[in-house]
Structure formats: C-alpha cells, structure tokens
C-alpha cells in the first residue's frame, strides 16, 4: 500500500515529495501523517516556551492560581514592561543582553579560530604524539566546571598581578574562560567535520601548486562552512547559557542574561513567574530567529561563493 501511495505521490509532485533525498520517507507520504508528526514534535519541543508566553501575559495572581490558569483572562504586556525596566543597581536587562551578546560572540570567535587550526592538524596532518596530545586536550575539559571555579579565579587574579589586566569583575573574566573551556568540544566536533571531506581535494590543490596551509585556507575551509557554522552555534549557545562563571566572576554591570533574569525575577522567597517567563521569552526568541536567519544567509551564501571561487 505504501508503495502505491509512494508512486502516486511521486507522479503528482516529485519536486516536493517528502524525502526526495531519502527515498524511504515516502512511506509517510500521506501528508496528514507527516504534518501530524511535525505538530507533535513541534509541540513537545516548544512546550515550555508556549507556556512561558502564556504565563508572561498573565497577572501575578494568575501565575500562582490553584489550579493553574491555562489562558490569561486579560492578556497584558505588563510583565515584559517590568522585565525591561527592572533596575538592578543602576543596570537593566538591556545591559545584560548586550553583555551576553559581546561575551558569547567574542569568545565564540576566539574559540572557533583556535579550534579550527587545531582540528585541522588533528584530522589531516601527520605528526608525532598525536593521540597523546588529543588526550591532553580532551582531559583538560573533563573536570567539572564547579571544581574549576576557584582555580580559574586565581588565574584571573594573577593576570592582574603579573600583566596588570583587571579581568575579575569585568566581562573579560567570562570571555577568557569561555574561549578556552569551549576548545576541547569545538576541536572534537570540527575534527569529525574535517574527516568528511575527501582527501583528494587538497591533494589536487597541492598538485596545483598550493602549499598545505593554502590548501587548508582556500579549499578545505570553505567546504567545512556548514560544519563550522554548526560548531559555532553549539559553542555560542553554550556560552550564552553559562551560569556558574557568569554569576561568580562578574559585578552587576557585567552580568549576563541568565544571571540577570534570575536576579530580576526572584526575591528572597518568591519567584515572580510572570517576569521570569517574559524575560526568558525575550532572551530565547530573538536568539533562535537570529540563528535561523544567519544559518540561511551565511551558510548558503558562503558555500555558494566557495563553489564558484
């Protein structure tokens, strides 16, 4: 039966047939079944965000009514307004947003630059002690961040003593550890992506007269753009959501979004769920939209350019 449906589907609209790339998806070719699954997956994945949006529109009394109010009676944006105007020692959530953007972006760029070089070396070059060096790189990421909190603090203090650079209490105190602590995972992931590119490509380039490093820059790097971008997203979101260092190495002016949200939404005993969810929605939605847009633009743009050049 599935077979017949599959043929019918193919005959009708081959271009948008489900899984034209992977033939097997055609057993699902009944559109209804497909979109039912999509609906379920989307509901599950979006669930807390949907509930957050609803809660953020409720009045304070509705957020803790027993049993819970499912839909706000009089949806209002008061919680958003409060989240935006809550003053923490002279700083507002906009500042924390900016801090998060700067910290996550700068440290992601640094991590990706360093990891790219190292991953290429691990994936493509022959050198002595390769597995031992990889083990060291990996091992340094295996201690729980909690155990690293105070030792890294001492290094940050040391940076001031020796170099005169004040890191502790500034966003630099986050950029430095994030840039380094993201390295092992970024390297591991990038190695896998480098592996997928056929060896012949760079050999061909080298026969054409490029040096090894030129081949890396001009041939391999463009081809790994999708993998590079995926890795960058992973590193970026990891930095964006980090809480422990962001709490402990900062002053109010350098708080990042997660710390800011927790601070504005809770008092000693009571959590203001309206503000908490409003702030979370404001933190998450722009981030996801931005990633989706960037992914579409950058990845398609760069890969297209790479093929031409």
């Amino acid at each position: 039966m599935a077979h017949i449906a599959e043929q019918a589907d193919q005959a009708r609209e081959p271009s948008i047939a489900v899984g034209s790339k992977q033939p097997g998806w055609r057993f699902l070719s009944s559109r209804a079944a497909l979109y039912l699954i999509v609906a379920v997956v989307v509901l599950v994945q979006f669930f807390p965000i949907i509930w957050s949006v609803l809660t953020s529109l409720m009045s304070p009394a509705e957020t803790t009514s027993i049993p819970a109010t499912l839909l706000p009676a009089h949806p209002s944006l008061t919680n958003y307004q409060q989240a935006l105007t809550s003053d923490i020692g002279g700083f507002k959530i906009g500042q924390f947003y900016l801090n998060s953007v700067i910290v996550s972006t700068v440290s992601t760029i640094v991590t990706m630059f360093l990891a790219m070089l190292a991953a290429y070396a691990f994936a493509r070059l022959n050198f002595r002690f390769k597995s031992q060096i990889l083990l060291i790189v990996l091992a340094l990421s295996l201690f729980p961040p909690l155990a690293q909190l105070i030792p890294i603090l001492r290094i940050l203090i040391l940076s001031k003593t020796i170099l005169g650079i004040q890191l502790f209490g500034t966003i630099g105190a986050l950029i430095v550890p994030y840039s380094v602590l993201g390295l092992p995972l970024a390297i591991l992931i990038l190695i896998a992506f480098f592996q997928e590119i056929p060896k012949d490509l760079e050999e061909a380039a080298m026969i054409d007269g490029m040096s090894r490093f030129q081949a890396f820059l001009r041939v391999i790097l463009p081809l790994t753009i999708p993998g590079f971008f995926t890795t960058a997203i992973i590193v970026f979101v990891g930095n964006w959501n980090e809480y422990l260092f962001a709490l402990n190495y900062t002053t109010t002016s350098s708080y990042t979004l997660p710390v800011g949200i927790v601070t504005i939404s809770q008092s000693e005993y009571v959590t203001n769920f309206g503000i908490l969810t409003a702030a979370t929605v404001m933190a998450v939605v722009p981030l996801v939209v931005l990633i989706l847009l960037l992914e579409r633009r950058i990845v398609s743009g760069l890969t297209a350019g790479a093929v031409k050049g």
Binding site: L163, I165, G169, T170, I171, T251
Partner: peptide
C-alpha cells in the same frame, strides 16, 4: 599599575 586598575569596570575594586 594604576592604568590597569582603571580598566576595571568597577572603580571600587
């Protein structure tokens, strides 16, 4: 050394 201190966001540190 003061120069380094001034780079701190938080003057009081």
């Amino acid at each position: 050394r003061k120069k380094g201190d001034c780079m701190a966001v938080n003057d009081a540190s």
